[in-house]
Structure formats: structure tokens, C-alpha cells
């Protein structure tokens, strides 16, 4: 059964009455389907106008649940979003970026989801709609584990909300994979740095993906960077103990040991890239 509503209310109603898997960009939906038939109801949300586009609002930027990676790349967004844009440009290939949605990437909840580190660094929240109305969850409370989210039965993601408080910060994203294009990362890092007028770190936010069940921020590192004069670079300040939240594993892509070491290297590089690269180069 396939249902393609045009309003959020219709979608919520359909979820309540018949349930179903949600289809948006399809890049995970069909990729995981293999040669099995699609059984059970499918709720295609791609025709709901209210879920489309990226909107700059007074105190937040709203990324609709159906906004694609290509739309993020093309959107006029402040430098704090450069990391997200860079991540978008590293997702699959052009064909995938044209279809896949950022919200779907979060719902798929892969440890290697490209969108998660940059959005964690942006303090993104998720707006959910369900039978009981809408609610908002910080991203780190939305993704609970590999392939596991806080979506309650009958709920769907409506938008990703990014507060506008970091807009002047610079950000950078680094993805390390076994090849160029079409690659699942071995490690990825999103970093965001804001400097005060004296060139000291006024705020730093660092998130690492593919090194734990869910991508995560590194609070100890972020604290350690606060107030540091950035002139001589920040890479040297990244210590092994800052990586304590990471729990990398061995898999076909790399060893855990390698991931940890590479994460440390990439964090340093991403932080320094935030200092050296002008916004919108």
C-alpha cells in the first residue's frame, strides 16, 4: 500500500491509521531493500510542500524534512554551515545528493551518517510531529544508537532546526574514506570555531562520526579550547584524553586503533582549517 499525502496532517493521520515506512528521498529506503519486495504500507512524504526547502527564520534556520543535500549545497547559509555543506558535497555522488534528504540521513541513524557531525556541531534540534502534536528534541537525544531513533510510533520528522547563535563561527568538515566519492567514511570530523576580537577561542564545537555507535561531540576538547589564543593554531591542543567519548570498532574499513589516531589528526586539521579558511572561499 502506497500513500502520498500533500499535508503533514494527512501524513500523521495515515501513520495513525495504517502505520507504514516513511519514504522521502529513497536513498536509504531502496538501498536497504535489496531484491526483496516492498511489503506493508509506505508513506511517501515527498509531495508535502510544508516539508520542503530551507528557511531562514528569526532565531533559527529550518531545514525541511524533504530538503535534499543538493539544496543544502545551493542554499545561502552563514559560514557556520560550511561544514554541513561540505558534508553534503561528500554524500555519495551527485545523483544521491539530488535525492537524499538530510532528515532521512538522521532517521537512518547510521554511525557513519554524514549529516550528523556537522549538525551536532550546530546544536541542531529535530522537530517531530505526531498524533500528540509536535515536539522538539536535541539531535543527540534523537539518535539513540545504530539504526535507532527516538521517533515514537506515529511520529515523523518535520524539520531540522538550527539556532542562529553561531552564525559567525567558521566551520569545517573532513571525511576520510577508502576512496574518493561514493564512500562510507572511516572517520569524519566537523569542527566549528568562533574567535573573539582578540583572536581567542570564544566557542569551539567538535563532533566525530564513524568512531562510536552514534556520532558525538567532544566536550572536554571544546572546553580546553575556550579562551585559547588561536594565532599559533589549535591542532596541537588536541589530546588523546579528549577522545574519551569515542568507541571505535574494527571493521572492513579500518581498525579501531587507526580510527582513533586518524580522528585526532583530522580534528586538529579541521580546527586549524576553521582558522585559516575565509568564509565562503
Amino acid at each position: 500500500m502506497y500513500f502520498r499525502p500533500t499535508t503533514i496532517d494527512e501524513a500523521i493521520g495515515a501513520l495513525a491509521s495504517q502505520g507504514g515506512r516513511i519514504l522521502a528521498g529513497g536513498t536509504d529506503f531502496f538501498a536497504t531493500q535489496g531484491d526483496r519486495p516492498v511489503l506493508g504500507p509506505v508513506l511517501d512524504i515527498s509531495a508535502i510542500d510544508a516539508l520542503k526547502g530551507i528557511r531562514v527564520e528569526a532565531d533559527q534556520i529550518r531545514i525541511g524534512a524533504c530538503a535534499t543535500w543538493s539544496e543544502v549545497i545551493a542554499a545561502d547559509l552563514p559560514p557556520a554551515f560550511d561544514a554541513l555543506k561540505a558534508a553534503a558535497a561528500e554524500v555519495g555522488g551527485w545523483q544521491i545528493q539530488n535525492l537524499g534528504t538530510i532528515a532521512g540521513n538522521l532517521c537512518n541513524a547510521s554511525p557513519a551518517a554524514d549529516g550528523v557531525p556537522p549538525l551536532l556541531a550546530l546544536d541542531a534540534a529535530i522537530e517531530l510531529a505526531g498524533p500528540a502534536g509536535t515536539r522538539r528534541l536535541p539531535l543527540d537525544q534523537f539518535i539513540l544508537g545504530p539504526r535507532r531513533t527516538a521517533l515514537a510510533p506515529g511520529e515523523m520528522v518535520v524539520a531540522i532546526l538550527v539556532p542562529r547563535r553561531f552564525e559567525d563561527a567558521r566551520s569545517h568538515f573532513m571525511k576520510l574514506g577508502g576512496r574518493r566519492y561514493l564512500v562510507i567514511s572511516i572517520v569524519m570530523v566537523a569542527a566549528q570555531v568562533a574567535l573573539d576580537l582578540q583572536g581567542r577561542v570564544a566557542g569551539a564545537r567538535v563532533a566525530v562520526g564513524s568512531c562510536s555507535a552514534v556520532a558525538c561531540r567532544l566536550p572536554a576538547l571544546e572546553r580546553a579550547l575556550l579562551g585559547v589564543a588561536a594565532g599559533a593554531g589549535l591542532a596541537g591542543l588536541v589530546r588523546t584524553e579528549h577522545l574519551a567519548p569515542l568507541r571505535p570498532i574494527d571493521d572492513v574499513r579500518a581498525t579501531a586503533l587507526y580510527r582513533l589516531e586518524a580522528a585526532q589528526t583530522l580534528i586538529g586539521r579541521a580546527l586549524d582549517a576553521c582558522l585559516s579558511e575565509p568564509a565562503h572561499a
Binding site: R4, G26, F29, S46, A47, I96, N98, L99
Partner: peptide, 11 residues
């Protein structure tokens, strides 16, 4: 350009 294996014809 899109991958036609990733789109439902309904879309």
C-alpha cells in the same frame, strides 16, 4: 541526474 533505482515511480 538521479539514480532511478532509488526512486519510486509514484514520486
Amino acid at each position: 541526474p538521479v539514480c532511478s533505482c532509488l526512486i519510486a515511480v509514484g514520486q
